[in-house]
Design a protein around this nucleic acid. Structure first.
Lengths: 231, 231
DNA sequence: GCATGTGAATGGATTCACAGCT
DNA sequence: AGCTGTGAATCCATTCACATGC
């Protein structure tokens, strides 16, 4: 639509078109990003939407439409340059600048998330944890992040410039963790607690209920007939 | 549609209508299930789709439509009986009979999932783990599940009647874990490895990329203006 | 020639509004 | 009267097909 002359893809960062985009679209950006990381590590220099789709079981018009929400990043007659497109998607997602996160709850799940590679590379870093158990305060995780008493959320979030709060406490403690994080000034919250949380408007939040995927699989299990082994 | 006389909701399990249902619908069943569990623990006996929607920020016609895919479970003029509806949804999801799961990868994440309450209550139980590290074989998790060498997947899946395989290994090992689980005869696979897996047809599978939710939040962070604190 | 970017067409899911039952 | 269950209407996302540009 913008008739502005199209710079080559490797030039200065193109302006990002910005408007209303569906969650489905942005979710797929993450998928594309993983694919591009793979291609880049294989040294593939450019790829068309068609081959990207074939290689990763996606569909090509959708890839083009999704990207078109944010600008024009391809080269007609050629395709997309893998490296620059990866960088562009990272910029769209805002992970070109490292986002600092902190985890409330240093139990099994919290500690595992703190050690999780995906939470400590390519745009994210877990810089601190909090726990209500005083015995854990002052110690560090196996991966070296400090564990603070939960009362210090406000101070640590400020000092460490934490932008994202992650909740990994038992359901009953989820609301308290959420409120403390919001009061401390984090910009977004990700919860792994199945407990229902009363959200505040204006603070983007997500809940990941790990059990949902198990239930979805269970549903499909029930519909598969002709299982080889009898129950 | 079925003009069969409608039995009271507390009677013998109603027949479940069965047909093609969207993933979006079944995903929401899990949401409704959590809500009903909450209501049940509060002792609420019946609830209308309207109040359910108001209480949990859902929308009422959608609740009715979603449920209508599977049968008629409500009482006109009254609403739904909380306990029976919960039981019905559990039956739809197939978790009225306990599903046994095993986890490949007894590292941080695998151990945390094995200990995760949601994976060991209300329809699911993690009965074993597997790890490539021989030092871990023969030990148990903190929650008491045995850890086996990865070569024993086939035997343990058979002996322990494992229906669901869960992958919690580093990306590079994900495909091998997947193949071993399928060969061993599991009916469904849930992967927490970001590594791309070539799937086999006929075996329902899901990948949960924990980083996706972080990236979604990062995206929205970038769009929020008027943040109180300057970066 | 070839692949992107995009308006137009299609297909699905959500929402509406009311008939039917309690 | 009140709420479910559902066809009809609306909305939104995906897919198509081609004009545009490399």
């Amino acid at each position: 639509m913008t008739p502005r002359r199209h710079d080559p893809a490797h030039a200065r960062p193109a302006p990002l078109r910005t408007g209303d985009v569906s969650e489905l679209t942005t979710g797929r950006l993450s998928v594309y990003l993983r694919c591009l990381e793979t291609l880049e590590s294989e040294g593939v220099p450019t790829i068309s939407s068609r081959s990207l789709a074939e290689r990763f079981h996606l569909n090509s018009p959708q890839i083009r439409k999704d990207l078109a929400n944010f600008g024009e990043f391809g080269i007609r007659g050629v395709g997309y340059e893998v490296g620059p497109l990866r960088a562009t998607i990272e910029r769209i997602l805002g992970i070109d600048q490292e986002k600092r996160a902190a985890i409330v709850g240093a139990g099994n799940l919290g500690s595992a998330l703190a050690a999780y590679a995906g939470f400590n590379e390519r745009g994210f870093r877990v810089v601190a944890l909090f726990d209500a158990d005083p015995a854990k305060a002052g110690t560090t995780t196996r991966t070296g992040q400090p564990i603070h008493p939960i009362e210090e959320i406000a101070r640590v979030v400020r000092d460490e410039k934490v932008e994202i709060g992650i909740i990994a406490v038992p359901p009953a403690a989820a609301q308290d963790a959420y409120d403390r994080l919001c009061d401390a000034g984090v910009g977004a919250v990700l919860s792994f607690s199945p407990g229902r949380i009363e959200l505040r408007p204006g603070i983007p939040s997500r809940t990941v209920d790990l059990k949902f995927s198990l239930e979805a699989l269970s549903f499909h299990l029930g519909r598969r007939r002709g299982s080889k082994r009898a129950g």
